[in-house]
Design a protein around this nucleic acid. Structure first.
Length: 141
DNA sequence: GCCAACGTTGGC
DNA sequence: GCCAACGTTGGC
């Protein structure tokens, strides 16, 4: 059953957990999401989906590509409530990071949910937007 | 169920 | 440091 691949973006402050740390760890459990909208996106992720990794705060740029390697399961860090996490694996850093001002001004990227709703920590990305990020990032998978 | 008050996040 | 956006809480 071939399902169509989806694309996502996750956001984290690099001081908290950077893409470099993910590369070092190889994989990580993406825990700690406590927002319903973000949680629902986590639940929609499928193994193999590609994930843009964005640094908020210091950097404010898309810095790397990761891939879902484990679909949603209960978040072990949640002591109450119906929360979940996914597993992601580092895939490749962007050769050239794509900074927020570029996202905001690019005709394809300015409609990204990240741009329109900056507090959302997990958001969907279209195939076209994902391809555009790779193009601007001078990176191919 | 509404809304004011407050807290948090993130960009500038 | 400030402000906008958004979520949560609590009084009514």
């Amino acid at each position: 059953v071939a399902t169509k691949k989806s694309y996502w973006l996750v956001k984290q402050e690099p001081e908290d957990y950077s893409f470099a740390e993910l590369q070092k760890d190889k994989t990580t459990a993406w825990t700690g999401v406590r927002n319903f909208q973000a949680r629902n996106f986590l639940r929609a992720m499928r193994e193999g989906d590609l994930v843009l990794f964005y640094h908020s705060g210091t950097g404010k740029e898309v810095t790397g590509i990761a891939q879902v390697n484990k679909e949603a399961e209960p978040d072990p860090t949640a002591t109450e409530g119906d929360w979940c996490c996914v597993g992601i694996a580092a895939k490749k850093p962007l050769k050239v990071p794509v900074p927020l001002p570029v996202l905001k001004s690019d005709p394809i990227l300015k409609s990204m949910l990240l741009v329109r709703q900056s507090r959302l920590s997990v958001s969907p990305v279209s195939r076209e937007q994902f391809a555009r990020i790779l193009e601007l990032g001078d990176t191919r998978l």
